[in-house]
Simulated scan of single mutants.
Amino acid sequence: MSVIPVELGGRSYDVHVGRGLLETLATIGSGLKKNRAVPLVADSNALAHHGARLIGGLESAGHRVAIHEISGGEAAKSWSQLERLTDWLLAQGVERGDRVLALGGGVVGDLTGLACAILKRGTGFIQLPTTLLAQVDSSVGGKTAINTSAGKNLVGAFHQPSLVLADLDTLATLPPRELRAGYAEVLKYGVLGDPAFFNWLSDDGAAVLSLDPEALEHAISTSIAAKARIVAKDERETSGRRALLNLGHTFGHALEAATGFSDRLLHGEAVALGMVLAARYSARRNHLSLDDADRVTRVVASAGLPTEISALGLDCDGSALTAHMLHDKKMKSGTLPFILLRGIGEAYLARDVDLADVAQFLDGQSQAH
């Protein structure tokens, strides 16, 4: 098992990565009360696959568990679901010093985290991510949010968990497509800041996707440690350092919006394609070699992830895609910064990108590949 600290002063916490962690939560987690039920917010699929192990371990330690089940995927990150969840937590008598459990993927973590951020002006919670995407990305760093009609994750708060348990056993039940989508975020850490890790993934990525225990723990622990270092330096994304974690996301979110935030394009798939586009656009600006852009494309493709806009069958052009980008949270004074590359492992924040040029680039991508 690996333990990665997220150093945030009085809000510091640990991320545990290993097998069999759900059963041992009662011995690892602090703040779990025995005088009333432990509140568990769970994705219906995660509950079906992993609930027995988690609840059994808690009950063996003398805890009772109350369950609030979430279903509906990304659509569950809504005002109505947030209201339902906060009302349920209040009905359970949750106090600020309690720990609410979030079992599932990024949707449950985001929704539960936001509910806990606003409940009594801040209630503790524990992330129990059951997807690769959530384990290496959304469960760490304290970003919580819901979606609105204007766009994805536009209503939210920074609210750090008190503990994260990334149980590798949960990944065995993931559909292959979901696993590949999560792997895109693993690749992201290599592309943005760790060329040695990128090279390792180029050689051994297949072992990660086949759930080889040693390769899987190394990939997840390395990814989380990279994110923890960035979050510790720029928790609230004010210096630009944390913005580097959005590599692939500006392009990716536009593509998600164009596909209606549906299962036509999963978030991780959008990030993968977004990284390819960011690499190619960096090459267009002569900041990245064509060889490196092609290498990013090959490694993404080798993982079974999308690399071409044309494969999505979109009924929109580059201008329509850049229009979606105008809702991006990173917009400042009418300018949208992009995360681009000077080399593999050398991401940077570009504040001088012309969206008209991006639209023209995207039109060319749709036609040329």
Results as ranks from 00 to 15, higher is better:
271 V>C: 03
220 I>G: 01
238 T>Y: 03
237 E>H: 10
298 R>M: 11
279 A>Y: 02
239 S>T: 12
286 N>T: 14
301 A>T: 04
285 R>K: 14
314 L>W: 00
211 L>N: 06
261 F>L: 14
278 A>V: 07
313 G>D: 05
327 H>M: 15
232 A>N: 08
216 L>C: 01
250 T>E: 03
286 N>H: 13
208 V>W: 05
232 A>E: 05
301 A>D: 07
246 N>V: 02
248 G>F: 00
302 S>W: 04
303 A>W: 03
218 H>I: 14
301 A>L: 05
278 A>Q: 05
255 L>Q: 01
289 S>V: 06
280 R>I: 11
297 T>F: 08
291 D>A: 13
333 S>I: 12
251 F>N: 02
334 G>N: 07
260 G>I: 13
272 A>C: 11
294 D>K: 11
228 A>W: 00
215 A>W: 11
260 G>F: 06
319 S>Y: 13
317 D>T: 07
212 D>E: 10
255 L>H: 02
225 A>T: 09
311 A>Q: 15
247 L>A: 05
231 V>R: 01
205 G>T: 04
279 A>C: 12
233 K>F: 11
237 E>F: 04
261 F>R: 08
219 A>T: 03
283 A>K: 07
282 S>G: 11
286 N>D: 15
288 L>K: 06
286 N>E: 15
312 L>Q: 10
208 V>C: 07
264 R>T: 10
222 T>D: 10
223 S>R: 03
244 L>E: 01
318 G>E: 06
311 A>V: 12
332 K>N: 14
278 A>D: 02
284 R>S: 14
224 I>S: 04
326 L>I: 14
264 R>I: 06
224 I>R: 02
235 E>M: 05
222 T>G: 06
282 S>D: 09
258 A>H: 09
264 R>G: 09
281 Y>S: 05
294 D>W: 10
243 A>E: 11
328 D>Y: 12
337 P>S: 09
270 A>Q: 03
256 E>H: 08
222 T>I: 08
337 P>G: 06
220 I>E: 02
326 L>M: 15
265 L>T: 01
205 G>I: 02
253 H>I: 11
306 P>D: 08
257 A>C: 13
254 A>M: 07
334 G>D: 08
269 E>M: 12
327 H>F: 15
246 N>H: 09
209 L>Q: 12
264 R>Y: 08
306 P>N: 12
243 A>P: 04
320 A>R: 08
230 I>Y: 04
302 S>E: 09
225 A>N: 08
333 S>A: 14
325 M>Y: 07
306 P>M: 07
289 S>L: 04
307 T>P: 05
335 T>K: 14
300 V>T: 08
265 L>D: 01
239 S>W: 08
271 V>G: 00
212 D>W: 02
239 S>C: 07
301 A>Q: 05
245 L>G: 00
284 R>I: 12
216 L>Q: 00
267 H>Y: 13
239 S>H: 10
309 I>Y: 01
308 E>R: 15
319 S>R: 15
251 F>L: 06
238 T>E: 15
265 L>M: 12
240 G>M: 05
320 A>M: 13
233 K>R: 14
